[in-house]
Structure formats: structure tokens, C-alpha cells
């Protein structure tokens, strides 16, 4: 789902970087005002966990598979802020070390997958009240679908933001009519597999008493 470098216009990624920078600052400030002996290792290992969950291949009907986002289990077990920070660090490392995603797109990717994905999961879980399994499944499904919709919107408006006078695009070439179905439809299925994965991890975390 990551947007790579070069497809987003500066009118998109520069404000997104600004917004993400504010969100990162508030998140770090919220973690007891500084990194300390509890937060540094926890953030580091959550980052590795987010990366590791992203490597877990989720089976899709027909023998194919997609990879998990892993934001939902992290957000449901550890909270929105740690999940957002950890996922942002994953995106930075993926962009610089592995060429997946991009440094210009980091702000958009972090806000959509990290912040919106984590928030969608936690809000859905809270709205579900005592229906634990339903809340986790719907939250995990939304943690994939909401970022997919947002990323499709961001990609789909690029032809409007950057094009030559003759109409030739300068950045991502397809409008919303293409990006919304192309990004959303596969993620509706990936969301179902992510929900099953998140539920298994959630039940495991409860058995280990990491959560009430």
C-alpha cells in the first residue's frame, strides 16, 4: 500500500510532512516528555514488531496472498500513540534501507497507515463495547480499509494538482475513478485476513494478561 517517492506532488507531500511532524512531536511529548529506559526499547521492539507483522503473508482466496499491515494489533494492545510512532519508524527504515515507500511520501504514509489506521482500529473497538471479537475484527478490517481509501484519495487527486498546460500529468497519472477501485478492492479482502490475524493475536495477548 505504500506510496513510493516521485508520484506525489510537493503540494501534497510538503503539507503532509508538516502535519506528520506536528503529530510526531505531540506523540513523543505524550510519552512522558522524553525517551527513557522504558520507552526506547519498547518503541524499538514495537517498530520491529510492526515490521515483522508486515512480513506475515495473509492468505487470500485463489492461492494468492497480501501482507499484513500489523497496525491494528499494535494499536489495540499498546495504544494509538505507540503504534503510530512505531509504524512511522518502520516506514522511515523501509524507505531508506529497503527502498519500499519513500522519504517524500513518508508523511502521507505515516498519517494514513500509522495514525488513521491505528485510530480506526481503536475507535471501532471502543464503539463495539463488550463485544470483544466483533470490535477487534471490525477495527482491524477498518485499519486496512480506511488507509486504503485515504491513500487512493491522495493518489487520485495528483492529476488535478500537477499537470502541464496540455493536460499531461506530472506525478501520479490516474484520477479517483481508477485509484479508488484499484486500491480499495484488494484491501477489502486483505482487511478480512488482517481481522482474523488481529483476533488471534488479541486473544493470545489476553491469555498472557497483557491486556484486561
Amino acid at each position: 500500500m505504500h506510496i513510493p517517492d516521485g508520484f506525489l506532488s510537493p503540494q501534497t507531500y510538503l503539507p503532509a510532512w508538516g502535519l506528520a511532524a506536528v503529530a510526531w512531536w505531540l506523540a513523543v511529548r505524550g510519552l512522558r516528555h522524553r525517551f527513557d529506559e522504558e520507552t526506547i526499547p519498547r518503541l524499538a521492539v514495537l517498530t520491529a514488531l510492526a515490521y515483522g507483522l508486515g512480513l506475515v503473508m495473509l492468505p487470500l482466496p485463489g492461492g494468492t496472498s497480501g501482507h499484513a499491515l500489523g497496525v491494528a494489533p499494535m494499536a489495540l494492545i499498546f495504544g494509538i500513540v505507540p503504534a503510530f510512532l512505531a509504524y512511522s519508524l518502520v516506514l522511515l527504515l523501509q524507505a531508506l534501507l529497503f527502498g519500499a515507500g519513500g522519504i517524500t511520501a513518508l508523511g502521507v504514509n505515516a498519517l494514513t497507515m500509522g495514525l488513521a489506521g491505528a485510530t480506526a482500529a481503536v475507535v471501532a473497538k471502543r464503539l463495539a463495547g463488550r463485544r470483544d471479537a466483533a470490535g477487534v475484527c471490525i477495527g482491524a478490517w477498518l485499519s486496512v480499509v480506511v488507509p486504503a481509501v485515504l491513500l487512493a484519495l491522495v493518489l487520485g487527486i495528483q492529476p488535478l494538482l500537477g499537470r502541464r498546460t496540455d493536460g499531461t500529468p506530472l506525478f501520479f497519472p490516474f484520477g479517483l475513478a481508477v485509484t479508488l477501485p484499484a486500491v480499495l478492492i484488494p484491501h477489502l479482502l486483505i482487511g478480512i485476513a488482517e481481522a482474523a490475524l488481529a483476533l488471534a493475536i488479541w486473544r493470545h495477548a489476553k491469555r498472557r494478561k497483557w491486556i484486561e
Partner: peptide, 29 residues
């Protein structure tokens, strides 16, 4: 089978993460 394998991978990563965070904190201290 593949779904069971994926959930086992997720659970194992979670266990390893919690243990690794505690180990790292102690080692750094």
C-alpha cells in the same frame, strides 16, 4: 492452513517482542 500459520507467526512475534523489550531495557540499563 495458511491462515493458521499466519496467526502463529503473529503470536510468536508478539511473544518475542515483549521478551526482547524487557531484555533490551535491562541490557541498556
Amino acid at each position: 492452513d495458511r491462515m493458521r500459520s499466519a496467526s502463529a507467526q503473529g503470536r510468536d512475534l508478539l511473544d518475542k517482542s515483549v521478551a526482547a523489550a524487557q531484555e533490551s531495557a535491562l541490557a541498556m540499563r
